[in-house]
Design a protein around this nucleic acid. Structure first.
Lengths: 258, 258
DNA sequence: ACTTGTCGAGAGAGCCATTCTCACCTAGCG
DNA sequence: CGCTAGGTGAGAATGGCTCTCTCGACAAGT
Protein backbone atom coordinates (compact mmCIF):
# COMPACT_ATOMS: atom_id res chain seq x y z
CA UNK A 1 0.00 0.00 0.00
CA UNK A 2 1.48 3.26 -1.13
CA UNK A 3 0.96 6.52 0.62
CA UNK A 4 1.54 9.81 -1.00
CA UNK A 5 0.38 12.21 1.60
CA UNK A 6 2.21 12.72 4.81
CA UNK A 7 -0.05 12.78 7.78
CA UNK A 8 0.16 16.32 8.94
CA UNK A 9 1.64 18.21 6.06
CA UNK A 10 -1.11 17.54 3.64
CA UNK A 11 -1.39 17.95 -0.02
CA UNK A 12 1.61 19.88 -1.03
CA UNK A 13 3.97 17.45 0.56
CA UNK A 14 2.94 14.88 -1.94
CA UNK A 15 5.44 14.85 -4.67
CA UNK A 16 8.46 15.74 -2.63
CA UNK A 17 8.34 12.38 -1.04
CA UNK A 18 7.71 10.27 -4.02
CA UNK A 19 7.69 10.74 -7.70
CA UNK A 20 9.89 13.70 -8.17
CA UNK A 21 12.66 12.50 -5.91
CA UNK A 22 12.37 9.01 -7.27
CA UNK A 23 13.32 10.34 -10.63
CA UNK A 24 15.35 13.34 -9.64
CA UNK A 25 17.46 11.62 -7.09
CA UNK A 26 18.23 8.86 -9.43
CA UNK A 27 19.32 11.55 -11.86
CA UNK A 28 21.64 13.05 -9.30
CA UNK A 29 23.18 9.78 -8.49
CA UNK A 30 23.82 8.96 -12.11
CA UNK A 31 25.10 12.42 -12.94
CA UNK A 32 27.53 12.72 -10.09
CA UNK A 33 28.88 9.25 -10.72
CA UNK A 34 27.95 8.31 -7.19
CA UNK A 35 30.88 9.14 -4.97
CA UNK A 36 31.66 7.07 -1.87
CA UNK A 37 29.48 7.77 1.18
CA UNK A 38 25.84 8.48 0.37
CA UNK A 39 25.09 10.57 3.48
CA UNK A 40 28.14 12.72 2.82
CA UNK A 41 26.69 13.81 -0.49
CA UNK A 42 24.11 15.93 1.28
CA UNK A 43 26.81 17.98 2.91
CA UNK A 44 28.74 18.97 -0.19
CA UNK A 45 28.55 22.58 -1.27
CA UNK A 46 26.39 23.16 -4.35
CA UNK A 47 28.63 23.28 -7.39
CA UNK A 48 27.17 23.99 -10.80
CA UNK A 49 26.07 20.43 -11.18
CA UNK A 50 24.13 20.46 -7.97
CA UNK A 51 22.56 23.74 -8.82
CA UNK A 52 21.53 22.49 -12.21
CA UNK A 53 20.04 19.40 -10.66
CA UNK A 54 18.12 21.31 -8.08
CA UNK A 55 16.89 23.62 -10.77
CA UNK A 56 15.48 20.73 -12.80
CA UNK A 57 14.19 19.22 -9.61
CA UNK A 58 12.33 22.39 -8.86
CA UNK A 59 11.01 22.46 -12.36
CA UNK A 60 9.83 18.89 -12.07
CA UNK A 61 8.29 19.67 -8.74
CA UNK A 62 6.31 22.60 -9.90
CA UNK A 63 5.22 20.71 -12.98
CA UNK A 64 3.95 17.98 -10.70
CA UNK A 65 2.37 20.43 -8.32
CA UNK A 66 0.54 21.97 -11.17
CA UNK A 67 -0.68 18.62 -12.38
CA UNK A 68 -1.93 17.59 -8.98
CA UNK A 69 -3.56 20.93 -8.52
CA UNK A 70 -5.38 20.47 -11.78
CA UNK A 71 -6.78 17.19 -10.56
CA UNK A 72 -7.89 18.79 -7.34
CA UNK A 73 -9.46 21.79 -9.01
CA UNK A 74 -11.28 19.64 -11.47
CA UNK A 75 -12.60 17.41 -8.74
CA UNK A 76 -13.85 20.44 -6.82
CA UNK A 77 -15.47 21.66 -9.96
CA UNK A 78 -17.29 18.40 -10.52
CA UNK A 79 -18.43 18.27 -6.94
CA UNK A 80 -19.73 21.79 -7.18
CA UNK A 81 -21.65 20.98 -10.30
CA UNK A 82 -23.05 17.69 -9.18
CA UNK A 83 -23.54 18.50 -5.54
CA UNK A 84 -22.18 15.09 -4.69
CA UNK A 85 -18.89 13.28 -4.59
CA UNK A 86 -20.17 10.72 -7.03
CA UNK A 87 -18.03 11.75 -9.91
CA UNK A 88 -15.92 9.18 -11.67
CA UNK A 89 -12.20 9.26 -12.01
CA UNK A 90 -12.71 9.11 -15.70
CA UNK A 91 -14.55 12.41 -15.59
CA UNK A 92 -11.81 14.03 -13.60
CA UNK A 93 -9.22 12.77 -15.97
CA UNK A 94 -11.05 13.78 -19.10
CA UNK A 95 -11.97 17.18 -17.92
CA UNK A 96 -8.56 17.99 -16.57
CA UNK A 97 -7.11 16.80 -19.86
CA UNK A 98 -4.77 14.40 -18.22
CA UNK A 99 -4.48 10.67 -18.30
CA UNK A 100 -5.75 7.93 -16.11
CA UNK A 101 -2.25 6.77 -15.77
CA UNK A 102 -1.24 10.21 -14.61
CA UNK A 103 -3.96 10.21 -12.04
CA UNK A 104 -2.87 7.01 -10.41
CA UNK A 105 0.63 8.32 -10.52
CA UNK A 106 -0.34 10.86 -7.92
CA UNK A 107 -3.25 9.35 -6.13
CA UNK A 108 -3.59 5.85 -4.87
CA UNK A 109 -7.29 5.79 -5.19
CA UNK A 110 -10.34 7.89 -5.43
CA UNK A 111 -10.54 8.03 -1.66
CA UNK A 112 -7.10 9.49 -1.62
CA UNK A 113 -8.22 12.26 -3.90
CA UNK A 114 -11.24 13.13 -1.84
CA UNK A 115 -9.17 12.92 1.26
CA UNK A 116 -6.98 15.60 -0.24
CA UNK A 117 -10.01 17.75 -0.91
CA UNK A 118 -11.11 17.16 2.64
CA UNK A 119 -7.77 18.24 3.98
CA UNK A 120 -7.91 21.38 1.90
CA UNK A 121 -11.36 22.15 3.15
CA UNK A 122 -10.44 21.60 6.76
CA UNK A 123 -7.45 23.82 6.32
CA UNK A 124 -9.62 26.58 4.90
CA UNK A 125 -12.10 26.14 7.70
CA UNK A 126 -9.31 26.33 10.22
CA UNK A 127 -8.04 29.58 8.80
CA UNK A 128 -11.48 31.06 8.74
CA UNK A 129 -12.23 30.01 12.27
CA UNK A 130 -8.93 31.24 13.59
CA UNK A 131 -9.55 34.58 12.00
CA UNK A 132 -12.99 34.84 13.52
CA UNK A 133 -11.67 33.92 16.92
CA UNK A 134 -8.97 36.53 16.77
CA UNK A 135 -11.68 39.18 16.84
CA UNK A 136 -12.86 38.05 20.26
CA UNK A 137 -11.05 38.35 23.52
CA UNK A 138 -13.39 36.85 26.06
CA UNK A 139 -12.56 33.14 26.47
CA UNK A 140 -16.19 32.07 26.38
CA UNK A 141 -16.90 34.23 23.37
CA UNK A 142 -14.00 32.65 21.58
CA UNK A 143 -15.27 29.22 22.35
CA UNK A 144 -18.68 30.22 21.13
CA UNK A 145 -17.36 31.59 17.90
CA UNK A 146 -15.43 28.45 17.31
CA UNK A 147 -18.48 26.30 17.79
CA UNK A 148 -20.75 28.38 15.65
CA UNK A 149 -18.29 28.77 12.85
CA UNK A 150 -17.46 25.12 12.73
CA UNK A 151 -21.10 24.23 12.65
CA UNK A 152 -21.77 26.58 9.81
CA UNK A 153 -18.75 25.36 8.03
CA UNK A 154 -19.94 21.78 8.02
CA UNK A 155 -23.29 22.59 6.63
CA UNK A 156 -23.60 26.02 5.13
CA UNK A 157 -27.26 26.92 5.24
CA UNK A 158 -28.47 27.41 1.72
CA UNK A 159 -26.14 26.50 -1.02
CA UNK A 160 -25.59 29.60 -3.08
CA UNK A 161 -22.09 29.20 -1.81
CA UNK A 162 -20.09 32.24 -0.97
CA UNK A 163 -17.55 33.38 -3.47
CA UNK A 164 -14.31 31.59 -3.51
CA UNK A 165 -15.26 28.60 -1.47
CA UNK A 166 -16.60 25.27 -2.53
CA UNK A 167 -19.62 23.29 -1.75
CA UNK A 168 -18.85 21.69 1.51
CA UNK A 169 -21.78 19.47 2.17
CA UNK A 170 -20.70 16.75 -0.23
CA UNK A 171 -17.27 16.80 1.29
CA UNK A 172 -18.58 16.64 4.82
CA UNK A 173 -20.70 13.75 3.75
CA UNK A 174 -17.87 11.90 2.23
CA UNK A 175 -15.92 12.57 5.37
CA UNK A 176 -18.33 10.27 7.17
CA UNK A 177 -17.36 7.59 4.78
CA UNK A 178 -13.71 8.37 5.18
CA UNK A 179 -14.01 8.38 8.94
CA UNK A 180 -15.16 4.81 8.66
CA UNK A 181 -12.39 3.65 6.38
CA UNK A 182 -9.48 5.95 6.99
CA UNK A 183 -10.01 7.05 10.54
CA UNK A 184 -6.34 7.83 11.02
CA UNK A 185 -6.19 10.15 8.06
CA UNK A 186 -9.31 11.99 9.04
CA UNK A 187 -8.06 12.30 12.58
CA UNK A 188 -4.82 13.76 11.34
CA UNK A 189 -6.62 16.23 9.13
CA UNK A 190 -8.78 17.35 11.99
CA UNK A 191 -5.85 17.48 14.36
CA UNK A 192 -5.22 21.22 14.17
CA UNK A 193 -8.87 21.98 14.76
CA UNK A 194 -9.04 19.60 17.70
CA UNK A 195 -6.00 21.18 19.24
CA UNK A 196 -7.39 24.64 18.77
CA UNK A 197 -10.63 23.64 20.42
CA UNK A 198 -8.75 22.06 23.26
CA UNK A 199 -6.90 25.30 23.83
CA UNK A 200 -10.09 27.26 23.91
CA UNK A 201 -11.64 24.85 26.36
CA UNK A 202 -8.63 24.98 28.59
CA UNK A 203 -8.50 28.74 28.52
CA UNK A 204 -12.19 29.08 29.20
CA UNK A 205 -11.92 26.60 32.05
CA UNK A 206 -8.96 28.46 33.50
CA UNK A 207 -10.93 31.67 33.34
CA UNK A 208 -13.72 29.98 35.23
CA UNK A 209 -16.17 30.49 32.40
CA UNK A 210 -16.92 26.80 32.25
CA UNK A 211 -16.45 23.93 34.65
CA UNK A 212 -15.12 20.73 33.19
CA UNK A 213 -13.78 17.72 34.98
CA UNK A 214 -11.83 16.34 32.10
CA UNK A 215 -10.87 18.86 29.43
CA UNK A 216 -9.91 16.23 26.90
CA UNK A 217 -13.25 14.53 26.98
CA UNK A 218 -15.09 17.76 27.09
CA UNK A 219 -13.26 18.76 23.97
CA UNK A 220 -14.10 15.52 22.29
CA UNK A 221 -17.75 15.87 23.16
CA UNK A 222 -18.01 19.38 21.85
CA UNK A 223 -16.21 18.47 18.68
CA UNK A 224 -18.48 15.53 18.15
CA UNK A 225 -21.63 17.35 18.90
CA UNK A 226 -20.80 20.06 16.45
CA UNK A 227 -19.38 17.86 13.74
CA UNK A 228 -22.31 15.52 13.70
CA UNK A 229 -25.21 17.70 14.53
CA UNK A 230 -25.42 18.91 10.97
CA UNK A 231 -25.51 15.33 9.87
CA UNK A 232 -28.27 14.58 12.29
CA UNK A 233 -30.30 17.32 10.69
CA UNK A 234 -30.52 15.12 7.71
CA UNK A 235 -33.00 13.06 9.63
CA UNK A 236 -35.20 16.03 10.33
CA UNK A 237 -37.63 16.77 7.57
CA UNK A 238 -39.16 20.03 8.58
CA UNK A 239 -36.53 22.72 8.02
CA UNK A 240 -38.08 24.70 10.84
CA UNK A 241 -37.03 22.00 13.19
CA UNK A 242 -33.48 21.60 12.12
CA UNK A 243 -30.93 22.43 14.73
CA UNK A 244 -28.92 25.52 14.06
CA UNK A 245 -25.53 26.58 15.23
CA UNK A 246 -26.93 28.65 18.06
CA UNK A 247 -28.84 25.79 19.57
CA UNK A 248 -25.98 23.46 19.25
CA UNK A 249 -23.79 25.95 20.99
CA UNK A 250 -26.16 26.40 23.87
CA UNK A 251 -26.41 22.72 24.36
CA UNK A 252 -22.65 22.47 24.45
CA UNK A 253 -22.38 25.41 26.76
CA UNK A 254 -24.67 23.81 29.29
CA UNK A 255 -23.00 20.49 28.73
CA UNK A 256 -19.80 22.20 29.71
CA UNK A 257 -21.36 23.60 32.83
CA UNK A 258 -21.05 27.18 31.60
CA UNK B 1 -38.90 3.07 -8.08
CA UNK B 2 -40.56 0.22 -6.28
CA UNK B 3 -40.92 0.04 -2.57
CA UNK B 4 -41.56 -3.13 -0.74
CA UNK B 5 -41.43 -2.04 2.82
CA UNK B 6 -44.06 0.12 4.34
CA UNK B 7 -42.63 2.92 6.37
CA UNK B 8 -43.61 2.04 9.86
CA UNK B 9 -44.60 -1.57 9.72
CA UNK B 10 -41.29 -2.87 8.61
CA UNK B 11 -40.19 -6.14 7.30
CA UNK B 12 -43.10 -8.41 7.69
CA UNK B 13 -45.40 -6.11 5.85
CA UNK B 14 -43.46 -6.74 2.72
CA UNK B 15 -45.14 -9.42 0.80
CA UNK B 16 -48.67 -8.59 1.78
CA UNK B 17 -48.42 -5.50 -0.27
CA UNK B 18 -46.79 -6.89 -3.28
CA UNK B 19 -45.90 -10.25 -4.63
CA UNK B 20 -48.22 -12.55 -2.83
CA UNK B 21 -51.32 -10.50 -3.38
CA UNK B 22 -50.21 -9.80 -6.89
CA UNK B 23 -50.48 -13.47 -7.57
CA UNK B 24 -53.03 -14.52 -5.02
CA UNK B 25 -55.46 -11.72 -5.66
CA UNK B 26 -55.31 -12.31 -9.30
CA UNK B 27 -56.22 -15.91 -8.49
CA UNK B 28 -59.22 -14.83 -6.47
CA UNK B 29 -60.45 -12.55 -9.13
CA UNK B 30 -60.17 -15.19 -11.77
CA UNK B 31 -61.67 -17.90 -9.58
CA UNK B 32 -64.70 -15.94 -8.42
CA UNK B 33 -65.35 -14.67 -11.90
CA UNK B 34 -65.14 -11.10 -10.61
CA UNK B 35 -68.57 -10.13 -9.39
CA UNK B 36 -69.82 -6.55 -9.64
CA UNK B 37 -68.45 -4.12 -7.03
CA UNK B 38 -64.83 -4.68 -6.08
CA UNK B 39 -65.02 -3.13 -2.59
CA UNK B 40 -68.08 -5.21 -1.77
CA UNK B 41 -66.07 -8.37 -2.22
CA UNK B 42 -64.23 -7.74 1.04
CA UNK B 43 -67.50 -7.86 2.95
CA UNK B 44 -68.79 -11.19 1.69
CA UNK B 45 -68.85 -14.07 4.12
CA UNK B 46 -66.16 -16.66 3.52
CA UNK B 47 -67.69 -19.54 1.53
CA UNK B 48 -65.60 -22.60 0.76
CA UNK B 49 -64.04 -20.85 -2.16
CA UNK B 50 -62.94 -17.88 -0.13
CA UNK B 51 -61.60 -20.11 2.56
CA UNK B 52 -59.70 -22.16 0.07
CA UNK B 53 -58.30 -19.05 -1.44
CA UNK B 54 -57.27 -17.59 1.85
CA UNK B 55 -55.68 -20.87 2.76
CA UNK B 56 -53.55 -20.86 -0.33
CA UNK B 57 -52.91 -17.20 0.20
CA UNK B 58 -51.70 -17.91 3.67
CA UNK B 59 -49.59 -20.71 2.37
CA UNK B 60 -48.07 -18.46 -0.22
CA UNK B 61 -47.54 -15.81 2.36
CA UNK B 62 -45.73 -18.00 4.79
CA UNK B 63 -43.69 -19.48 1.99
CA UNK B 64 -42.67 -15.96 1.06
CA UNK B 65 -42.10 -14.96 4.64
CA UNK B 66 -39.85 -17.89 5.07
CA UNK B 67 -37.94 -17.02 1.94
CA UNK B 68 -37.44 -13.44 2.97
CA UNK B 69 -36.45 -14.52 6.41
CA UNK B 70 -33.83 -16.78 4.94
CA UNK B 71 -32.34 -13.86 3.09
CA UNK B 72 -32.30 -11.79 6.22
CA UNK B 73 -30.80 -14.52 8.36
CA UNK B 74 -28.14 -15.24 5.83
CA UNK B 75 -27.24 -11.60 5.55
CA UNK B 76 -26.93 -11.33 9.31
CA UNK B 77 -24.78 -14.40 9.26
CA UNK B 78 -22.45 -12.96 6.68
CA UNK B 79 -22.20 -9.69 8.53
CA UNK B 80 -21.39 -11.51 11.72
CA UNK B 81 -18.68 -13.47 10.04
CA UNK B 82 -17.14 -10.64 8.12
CA UNK B 83 -17.67 -7.89 10.62
CA UNK B 84 -18.71 -5.65 7.80
CA UNK B 85 -21.64 -5.09 5.51
CA UNK B 86 -19.46 -5.66 2.53
CA UNK B 87 -20.93 -8.94 1.49
CA UNK B 88 -22.17 -9.42 -2.02
CA UNK B 89 -25.67 -10.26 -3.02
CA UNK B 90 -24.26 -13.28 -4.74
CA UNK B 91 -23.01 -14.58 -1.43
CA UNK B 92 -26.33 -14.10 0.21
CA UNK B 93 -28.06 -15.84 -2.61
CA UNK B 94 -25.68 -18.75 -2.78
CA UNK B 95 -25.58 -19.37 0.90
CA UNK B 96 -29.30 -19.12 1.38
CA UNK B 97 -29.70 -21.49 -1.52
CA UNK B 98 -31.99 -19.21 -3.37
CA UNK B 99 -31.73 -17.41 -6.65
CA UNK B 100 -30.66 -13.97 -7.64
CA UNK B 101 -33.93 -13.58 -9.33
CA UNK B 102 -35.67 -14.52 -6.14
CA UNK B 103 -33.70 -11.96 -4.24
CA UNK B 104 -34.71 -9.11 -6.47
CA UNK B 105 -38.22 -10.38 -6.26
CA UNK B 106 -38.28 -9.35 -2.64
CA UNK B 107 -35.74 -6.60 -2.36
CA UNK B 108 -35.25 -3.70 -4.64
CA UNK B 109 -31.60 -3.42 -3.95
CA UNK B 110 -28.90 -4.25 -1.54
CA UNK B 111 -29.63 -1.09 0.40
CA UNK B 112 -33.15 -2.30 0.83
CA UNK B 113 -31.90 -5.49 2.37
CA UNK B 114 -29.62 -3.76 4.81
CA UNK B 115 -32.34 -1.30 5.60
CA UNK B 116 -34.44 -4.26 6.62
CA UNK B 117 -31.67 -5.50 8.88
CA UNK B 118 -31.39 -2.03 10.31
CA UNK B 119 -35.08 -1.92 11.05
CA UNK B 120 -34.88 -5.26 12.75
CA UNK B 121 -31.98 -4.10 14.84
CA UNK B 122 -33.66 -0.90 15.86
CA UNK B 123 -36.73 -2.82 16.80
CA UNK B 124 -34.69 -5.13 18.99
CA UNK B 125 -32.93 -2.17 20.54
CA UNK B 126 -36.24 -0.51 21.21
CA UNK B 127 -37.59 -3.56 22.98
CA UNK B 128 -34.48 -3.89 25.04
CA UNK B 129 -34.47 -0.25 26.01
CA UNK B 130 -38.14 -0.22 26.87
CA UNK B 131 -37.62 -3.19 29.08
CA UNK B 132 -34.71 -1.55 30.87
CA UNK B 133 -36.68 1.62 31.38
CA UNK B 134 -39.61 -0.23 32.84
CA UNK B 135 -37.42 -1.16 35.78
CA UNK B 136 -36.97 2.49 36.72
CA UNK B 137 -39.54 4.85 38.07
CA UNK B 138 -37.69 8.10 38.58
CA UNK B 139 -38.05 10.23 35.42
CA UNK B 140 -34.41 11.21 35.38
CA UNK B 141 -33.29 7.66 35.97
CA UNK B 142 -35.40 6.54 33.06
CA UNK B 143 -33.88 9.13 30.83
CA UNK B 144 -30.47 8.05 31.95
CA UNK B 145 -31.14 4.43 31.26
CA UNK B 146 -32.40 5.27 27.84
CA UNK B 147 -29.29 7.20 27.00
CA UNK B 148 -26.88 4.64 28.30
CA UNK B 149 -28.62 1.72 26.70
CA UNK B 150 -28.86 3.37 23.37
CA UNK B 151 -25.22 4.28 23.47
CA UNK B 152 -24.23 0.74 24.28
CA UNK B 153 -26.52 -0.55 21.65
CA UNK B 154 -24.87 1.44 18.92
CA UNK B 155 -21.43 0.32 19.80
CA UNK B 156 -21.27 -2.70 22.05
CA UNK B 157 -17.90 -2.53 23.76
CA UNK B 158 -15.93 -5.55 22.72
CA UNK B 159 -17.42 -7.75 20.15
CA UNK B 160 -17.88 -11.17 21.68
CA UNK B 161 -21.49 -10.38 21.10
CA UNK B 162 -24.04 -11.53 23.56
CA UNK B 163 -26.01 -14.59 22.71
CA UNK B 164 -28.89 -14.13 20.41
CA UNK B 165 -28.05 -10.74 19.09
CA UNK B 166 -26.03 -9.76 16.08
CA UNK B 167 -23.03 -7.66 15.51
CA UNK B 168 -24.32 -4.19 15.49
CA UNK B 169 -21.38 -2.09 14.63
CA UNK B 170 -21.44 -2.89 10.94
CA UNK B 171 -25.12 -2.12 10.87
CA UNK B 172 -24.68 1.15 12.70
CA UNK B 173 -21.99 2.02 10.28
CA UNK B 174 -24.07 1.27 7.31
CA UNK B 175 -26.81 3.32 8.88
CA UNK B 176 -24.61 6.36 8.37
CA UNK B 177 -24.58 5.57 4.73
CA UNK B 178 -28.29 4.98 4.70
CA UNK B 179 -28.92 8.22 6.53
CA UNK B 180 -27.25 9.96 3.66
CA UNK B 181 -29.18 8.22 0.92
CA UNK B 182 -32.45 7.15 2.47
CA UNK B 183 -32.97 9.68 5.19
CA UNK B 184 -36.70 9.17 5.20
CA UNK B 185 -36.46 5.45 5.74
CA UNK B 186 -33.96 5.79 8.52
CA UNK B 187 -36.04 8.47 10.15
CA UNK B 188 -39.06 6.21 10.01
CA UNK B 189 -37.15 3.33 11.50
CA UNK B 190 -35.93 5.49 14.32
CA UNK B 191 -39.33 7.02 14.83
CA UNK B 192 -40.40 4.87 17.74
CA UNK B 193 -37.16 5.50 19.55
CA UNK B 194 -37.37 9.22 18.98
CA UNK B 195 -40.90 9.30 20.29
CA UNK B 196 -39.93 7.34 23.33
CA UNK B 197 -37.08 9.70 24.05
CA UNK B 198 -39.35 12.65 23.59
CA UNK B 199 -41.74 11.22 26.15
CA UNK B 200 -38.97 10.73 28.63
CA UNK B 201 -37.73 14.25 28.11
CA UNK B 202 -41.21 15.67 28.55
CA UNK B 203 -41.83 13.67 31.67
CA UNK B 204 -38.51 14.59 33.17
CA UNK B 205 -39.13 18.22 32.36
CA UNK B 206 -42.59 18.09 33.89
CA UNK B 207 -41.11 16.59 37.02
CA UNK B 208 -38.65 19.44 37.13
CA UNK B 209 -35.69 17.14 36.85
CA UNK B 210 -34.40 18.99 33.84
CA UNK B 211 -35.02 22.40 32.42
CA UNK B 212 -35.50 22.65 28.72
CA UNK B 213 -36.82 25.52 26.67
CA UNK B 214 -37.77 23.50 23.64
CA UNK B 215 -38.39 19.82 24.30
CA UNK B 216 -38.31 18.86 20.65
CA UNK B 217 -34.89 20.28 20.07
CA UNK B 218 -33.60 18.99 23.32
CA UNK B 219 -34.73 15.58 22.24
CA UNK B 220 -33.05 15.91 18.91
CA UNK B 221 -29.82 16.99 20.52
CA UNK B 222 -29.73 14.13 22.92
CA UNK B 223 -30.56 11.65 20.23
CA UNK B 224 -27.85 13.02 18.05
CA UNK B 225 -25.26 13.17 20.71
CA UNK B 226 -25.84 9.59 21.64
CA UNK B 227 -26.22 8.22 18.16
CA UNK B 228 -23.08 9.79 16.88
CA UNK B 229 -20.80 9.79 19.85
CA UNK B 230 -19.91 6.18 19.25
CA UNK B 231 -19.06 7.08 15.72
CA UNK B 232 -16.89 9.91 16.89
CA UNK B 233 -14.94 7.44 18.94
CA UNK B 234 -13.70 6.04 15.72
CA UNK B 235 -11.50 9.09 15.49
CA UNK B 236 -9.98 8.47 18.88
CA UNK B 237 -7.09 6.08 18.79
CA UNK B 238 -6.31 5.50 22.41
CA UNK B 239 -9.08 3.28 23.79
CA UNK B 240 -8.56 4.88 27.17
CA UNK B 241 -9.74 8.11 25.75
CA UNK B 242 -12.83 6.92 24.04
CA UNK B 243 -16.03 8.35 25.34
CA UNK B 244 -18.22 5.91 27.14
CA UNK B 245 -21.94 5.87 27.76
CA UNK B 246 -21.58 7.43 31.18
CA UNK B 247 -19.68 10.43 29.94
CA UNK B 248 -22.04 10.97 27.11
CA UNK B 249 -24.92 10.86 29.50
CA UNK B 250 -23.41 13.39 31.82
CA UNK B 251 -22.78 15.73 29.00
CA UNK B 252 -26.36 15.40 27.90
CA UNK B 253 -27.61 15.83 31.41
CA UNK B 254 -25.81 19.11 31.82
CA UNK B 255 -26.81 20.09 28.33
CA UNK B 256 -30.36 19.60 29.46
CA UNK B 257 -29.81 21.75 32.50
CA UNK B 258 -30.34 18.86 34.89
C1' DA C 1 21.49 8.12 -34.04
C1' DC C 2 20.73 5.62 -29.31
C1' DT C 3 19.27 5.12 -24.88
C1' DT C 4 16.47 6.14 -21.05
C1' DG C 5 12.87 8.18 -18.54
C1' DT C 6 8.24 10.28 -18.83
C1' DC C 7 3.64 10.36 -19.94
C1' DG C 8 -0.76 10.37 -22.81
C1' DA C 9 -4.11 7.16 -24.80
C1' DG C 10 -6.73 3.81 -24.04
C1' DA C 11 -7.44 -1.27 -23.86
C1' DG C 12 -8.43 -4.43 -20.54
C1' DA C 13 -9.17 -7.01 -15.81
C1' DG C 14 -11.87 -7.59 -11.97
C1' DC C 15 -15.71 -6.76 -9.11
C1' DC C 16 -20.43 -5.84 -8.30
C1' DA C 17 -25.20 -4.80 -8.57
C1' DT C 18 -28.92 -5.44 -11.32
C1' DT C 19 -31.51 -7.35 -15.34
C1' DC C 20 -32.77 -10.83 -18.59
C1' DT C 21 -33.48 -15.38 -20.65
C1' DC C 22 -34.68 -19.87 -20.49
C1' DA C 23 -36.12 -24.08 -18.94
C1' DC C 24 -38.42 -26.66 -15.41
C1' DC C 25 -42.12 -27.77 -12.51
C1' DT C 26 -46.59 -27.74 -10.81
C1' DA C 27 -51.46 -26.61 -10.47
C1' DG C 28 -55.51 -26.10 -12.79
C1' DC C 29 -58.29 -27.44 -16.73
C1' DG C 30 -60.44 -29.78 -20.51
C1' DC D 1 -54.07 -37.77 -18.94
C1' DG D 2 -51.96 -34.44 -21.60
C1' DC D 3 -51.68 -29.18 -21.89
C1' DT D 4 -50.86 -24.60 -20.73
C1' DA D 5 -49.43 -20.70 -17.93
C1' DG D 6 -47.52 -18.66 -14.03
C1' DG D 7 -43.96 -18.92 -10.73
C1' DT D 8 -39.26 -19.73 -9.93
C1' DG D 9 -34.35 -21.57 -9.98
C1' DA D 10 -29.91 -21.17 -12.56
C1' DG D 11 -27.05 -18.41 -14.07
C1' DA D 12 -25.61 -15.75 -18.34
C1' DA D 13 -25.48 -10.95 -19.87
C1' DT D 14 -25.13 -6.02 -19.01
C1' DG D 15 -23.34 -1.93 -17.42
C1' DG D 16 -20.72 1.03 -14.42
C1' DC D 17 -16.53 1.79 -12.04
C1' DT D 18 -12.06 1.55 -10.21
C1' DC D 19 -7.65 0.40 -11.01
C1' DT D 20 -3.72 -1.92 -13.95
C1' DC D 21 -1.09 -2.59 -17.95
C1' DT D 22 0.79 -2.06 -22.52
C1' DC D 23 2.16 0.71 -26.24
C1' DG D 24 3.99 4.23 -28.52
C1' DA D 25 5.43 9.07 -28.86
C1' DC D 26 8.27 12.63 -27.27
C1' DA D 27 12.34 14.73 -24.85
C1' DA D 28 16.89 15.02 -22.94
C1' DG D 29 21.09 13.37 -22.37
C1' DT D 30 25.22 10.88 -24.59
Amino acid sequence: MRTYFTRDEGILAVYDERHIPDGAVRGVKAGSQMAAGEPAAEMREPDWRERAVSRSLNAARSRAEERVQRFLDTAFELIDEKGTTEFTIQEVVDRSKQSLRGFYEYFDSKDELVLALFEETVREAGDDIREAIAAESDPLARLRVFTMRLHEWCDPGEEPRMRGTHRRRPISEFAMHLAANHADRVRAALGPLSRLLRELVDTAAAAGAIRVANPRRATALVQQTVLYSWFGNRLVENPERKLDAEETWEFCLHGLGG
